[in-house]
Nucleic acid binder design. Structure first.
Lengths: 121, 121
DNA sequence: AATTAATATGAATGAGTGCTCATATATTCA
DNA sequence: TGAATATATGAGCACTCATTCATATTAATT
């Protein structure tokens, strides 16, 4: 009774019909999508950016206050804000000579919350 | 009426009472926690690891099949699996000369789903 | 015991990245 | 207009990291 795949104890080299790897690959999103997902998480994957996103969950803030809240250089914060902006995770609103940043959408909040929850488990 | 902070239009240098930055910082998790959260997302922030986690959402698999599913070298997959293991995002089960990997817990599924959802929006 | 198969890992390398320093831009104020 | 404040950005550097190549380890098979 060959060709019986769906068996967890499938042996690798046994090529009866489509391989397990190919079957699973067929059920996955395309490479570009997975690449974009990785890019998204990469943005969350830096302590400075994480602090910024966390601070913005408390309230909208200007760069000056953000700089103090996260305890980093103004330059470092500005550089990271650019990355967050390009990833559309934050929004900017200019008022006078200050830039007020806020969270881009609720996904940011939810993703961060899940990560925090997992970390504190 | 000084000390009236809570105002969004607060001017940075105006130091009436506690600064906005310090107030917000006080409401944030500690640095170690935020660092750990960043470390968690950093693990999600690589295309190869993302593919592996995605493949394991379909079913438990041995390294051989995973290698084919994600289309990378066995060595590269093994190296990334070590990182995923240490982050406790995957579990291993040895059977004979094969190692079967599966997702560590449901957080992994939920975090990945949110990221995918945000990407496809 | 020797061979083969599956997986893991160390070293080397090349690409990517975050910070600092200096400076540019923009806006308010005198 | 000139000075001061807030923010943004380019270059350079140190460091991290993902892959490759070679090899080690473990287990099944003969």
């Amino acid at each position: 009774m060959k060709g019986m795949n769906g068996d967890l104890n499938n042996i690798c080299k046994e090529a009866a019909g489509a391989s397990v790897g190919a079957e699973v690959a067929a059920q996955m999103p395309g490479d570009e999508v997975l690449y974009d997902v990785a890019e998204l998480f990469k943005v969350f994957g830096d302590a400075t950016r994480t602090k910024i996103l966390c601070a913005l969950q408390v309230r909208e803030m200007c760069v000056c206050d953000l700089t103090e809240a996260v305890g980093m250089t103004q330059s470092a914060v500005s550089h990271q804000l650019r990355i967050l902006r390009h990833a559309r995770l934050v929004l900017v609103r200019r008022k006078g000579r200050q830039s007020y940043y806020s969270l881009g959408d609720n996904h940011v909040r939810r993703i961060f919350s899940l990560g925090l929850e997992h970390t504190l488990e």
